[in-house]
């Protein structure tokens, strides 16, 4: 059962990332900061913070259907780390070091801060 939920959530998350990524890239042609996955990752971390704030999965989250569907499936697959690593690598290859540091710091710290913020605010509001 859990496997099916993760598969469904994973498919939805990945397709949403793909479509949003294409949409953002269609608006920006400039070569430079790879903003599409930056936005996707921060947005996904923000969304997961709200979800975890609303829904406490308990001490064994991996046994929890809703947690598995949304946290592991949808948000897990919507965000990505492999593309982050490869895009960071490509910025080094192009010797765009300023973009490299901006991309790495904003992606990682931005995701962490927005997750923490959305989680804390959601818990406060409920």
């Amino acid at each position: 059962m859990s496997i099916t939920l993760v598969a469904i959530g994973g498919a939805i998350g990945a397709v949403l990332r793909y479509l949003l990524g294409l949409f953002i890239m269609s608006k920006r042609h400039k070569e430079g900061l790879p903003i599409a996955m930056l936005i996707v990752n921060i947005l996904g971390a923000f969304g997961l913070g709200i979800f975890i704030g609303i829904y406490n999965p308990g001490p064994e989250p991996l046994q929890n259907s809703l947690y598995v569907l949304f946290s592991i499936g949808v948000f897990g697959a919507f965000t990505t780390f492999s593309t982050f690593s490869v895009e960071a690598m490509q910025l080094i290859q192009r010797r765009q070091f300023k973009f490299f540091w901006t991309y790495v710091l904003v992606s990682v710290l931005g995701s962490i801060i927005l997750f923490g913020l959305s989680f804390a605010v959601t818990v406060q509001l409920l």
């Binding site: 971390a45 965000t79 780390f81 593309t83 995701s111």
Partner: peptide, 15 residues
Amino acid sequence: VGFCGGFTTMSALAN
């Protein structure tokens, strides 16, 4: 986009 993107995750890292 599908497999590697779905396998890895930034949201769990933030969490």
